[in-house]
Amino acid sequence: TETRTFDSEEEAKKAQKEAEKQGRTVTITRRDDRWEVRFD
C-alpha cells in the first residue's frame, strides 16, 4: 500500500486514473485542505 497526498482534487483524480489503468485499487480521502490517495 502506498499513500500520497495532493493539494488539489484534480491532482488526486489524475493519480487515481493512472493507478486504475495499472489495475490498482485507489481510495481518495479528504484530509482538511489536502487530498490523500491510497494505492492498494
Rank of each mutant, 00 (worst) to 15 (best):
T1C: 08
T1I: 13
T1H: 14
T1W: 15
T1G: 11
T1Q: 12
T1K: 10
T1A: 13
T1S: 14
T1V: 14
E2N: 12
E2G: 10
E2R: 12
E2V: 14
E2T: 13
E2L: 07
E2S: 12
E2F: 03
T3N: 09
T3W: 06
T3C: 12
T3L: 14
T3E: 08
T3G: 07
T3V: 14
T3H: 09
T3M: 11
R4K: 14
R4Y: 08
R4C: 09
R4A: 11
R4V: 15
R4P: 05
R4F: 10
R4Q: 15
R4H: 14
R4G: 07
T5Q: 11
T5R: 09
T5H: 13
T5C: 08
T5L: 15
T5K: 07
T5M: 15
T5D: 09
F6E: 02
F6I: 03
F6N: 01
F6D: 01
D7R: 03
D7T: 05
D7Y: 09
D7P: 11
D7I: 05
D7L: 08
D7E: 10
D7F: 09
D7M: 05
D7S: 05
S8H: 06
S8R: 04
S8Y: 04
S8L: 04
S8V: 04
S8Q: 05
S8P: 01
S8K: 06
S8D: 09
S8W: 02
S8G: 04
S8M: 03
E9Q: 05
E9W: 10
E9G: 01
E9I: 08
E9F: 13
E9S: 03
E10I: 08
E10D: 10
E10W: 09
E10Q: 08
E10C: 13
E10F: 08
E10K: 05
E10S: 05
E11T: 05
E11D: 13
E11V: 03
E11S: 06
E11F: 02
E11A: 09
E11K: 06
E11L: 07
E11H: 03
A12H: 00
A12Q: 01
A12Y: 03
A12F: 02
A12K: 00
A12V: 06
A12T: 03
A12N: 01
K13D: 06
K13T: 10
K13I: 15
K13M: 14
K13Q: 12
K13C: 12
K13E: 10
K13P: 00
K13G: 05
K13H: 10
K13W: 06
K13L: 15
K14M: 15
K14P: 00
K14E: 14
K14N: 14
K14C: 15
K14H: 14
K14A: 15
K14S: 11
K14T: 12
K14R: 11
K14D: 12
K14I: 13
A15L: 09
A15Q: 07
A15R: 04
A15N: 04
A15E: 07
A15Y: 14
A15V: 12
A15I: 11
A15K: 04
A15P: 00
A15T: 07
A15W: 08
Q16S: 11
Q16I: 13
Q16L: 13
Q16E: 09
Q16R: 08
Q16N: 03
Q16F: 12
Q16H: 06
Q16W: 07
Q16K: 13
K17V: 14
K17P: 01
K17W: 11
K17T: 12
K17Q: 13
K17E: 14
K17D: 12
K17Y: 13
K17H: 12
K17R: 13
K17L: 15
K17G: 10
E18M: 10
E18I: 10
E18L: 10
E18P: 01
E18H: 08
E18N: 09
E18D: 11
E18W: 04
E18Y: 04
A19R: 03
A19G: 10
A19M: 13
A19K: 03
A19N: 05
A19I: 08
A19Q: 06
A19T: 03
E20M: 11
E20N: 09
E20L: 12
E20C: 08
E20D: 06
E20H: 09
E20P: 01
E20G: 06
K21L: 15
K21T: 11
K21V: 10
K21R: 13
K21W: 06
K21Q: 14
K21D: 13
K21Y: 07
K21S: 14
K21N: 12
Q22S: 12
Q22N: 13
Q22V: 11
Q22R: 10
Q22L: 13
Q22C: 13
Q22D: 12
G23K: 04
G23L: 04
G23S: 04
G23T: 02
G23E: 03
G23H: 06
R24G: 07
R24A: 10
R24V: 12
R24Y: 08
R24N: 09
R24S: 08
R24F: 13
T25G: 09
T25L: 10
T25K: 14
T25Y: 02
T25Q: 11
T25D: 08
T25R: 12
T25E: 10
V26L: 00
V26A: 15
V26I: 06
V26D: 02
V26M: 00
V26C: 09
V26T: 09
V26R: 00
V26Q: 00
V26S: 13
V26K: 01
T27Q: 09
T27Y: 00
T27P: 02
T27I: 14
T27F: 00
T27G: 04
T27S: 12
T27R: 08
T27K: 08
T27D: 05
I28F: 00
I28R: 02
I28D: 02
I28A: 02
I28K: 01
I28M: 00
I28V: 12
I28H: 00
I28Q: 01
I28W: 00
I28T: 03
I28N: 01
I28S: 01
T29M: 03
T29D: 06
T29L: 03
T29E: 11
T29P: 01
T29G: 06
T29N: 08
R30E: 09
R30P: 09
R30H: 12
R30V: 12
R30N: 11
R30W: 05
R30L: 11
R30D: 04
R31L: 14
R31E: 08
R31F: 11
R31S: 10
R31P: 03
R31D: 07
R31A: 10
R31W: 06
R31K: 15
R31V: 15
D32L: 06
D32Q: 08
D32K: 08
D32A: 07
D32T: 05
D32M: 06
D32I: 04
D32H: 06
D32W: 00
D33A: 03
D33G: 12
D33Y: 00
D33V: 02
D33S: 05
D33N: 10
D33E: 09
D33W: 00
D33F: 00
D33K: 04
D33I: 02
R34M: 14
R34L: 12
R34K: 15
R34P: 01
R34E: 09
R34D: 07
R34V: 10
R34G: 15
R34T: 08
R34H: 15
W35V: 02
W35E: 02
W35Q: 01
W35D: 02
W35I: 03
W35A: 01
W35Y: 06
E36R: 00
E36N: 01
E36M: 03
E36K: 00
E36W: 02
E36D: 06
E36I: 07
E36P: 00
E36Y: 04
E36G: 00
E36H: 04
V37P: 02
V37T: 03
V37S: 01
V37A: 05
V37H: 00
V37K: 00
V37I: 08
V37Q: 01
V37W: 00
V37Y: 00
R38T: 14
R38E: 12
R38V: 13
R38W: 05
R38N: 12
R38I: 14
R38P: 02
R38A: 11
R38S: 14
F39I: 15
F39S: 09
F39L: 11
F39W: 11
F39V: 13
F39K: 03
F39H: 06
F39A: 07
F39Q: 06
D40N: 09
D40F: 05
D40P: 07
D40I: 11
D40Y: 04
D40W: 04
D40L: 10
D40R: 04
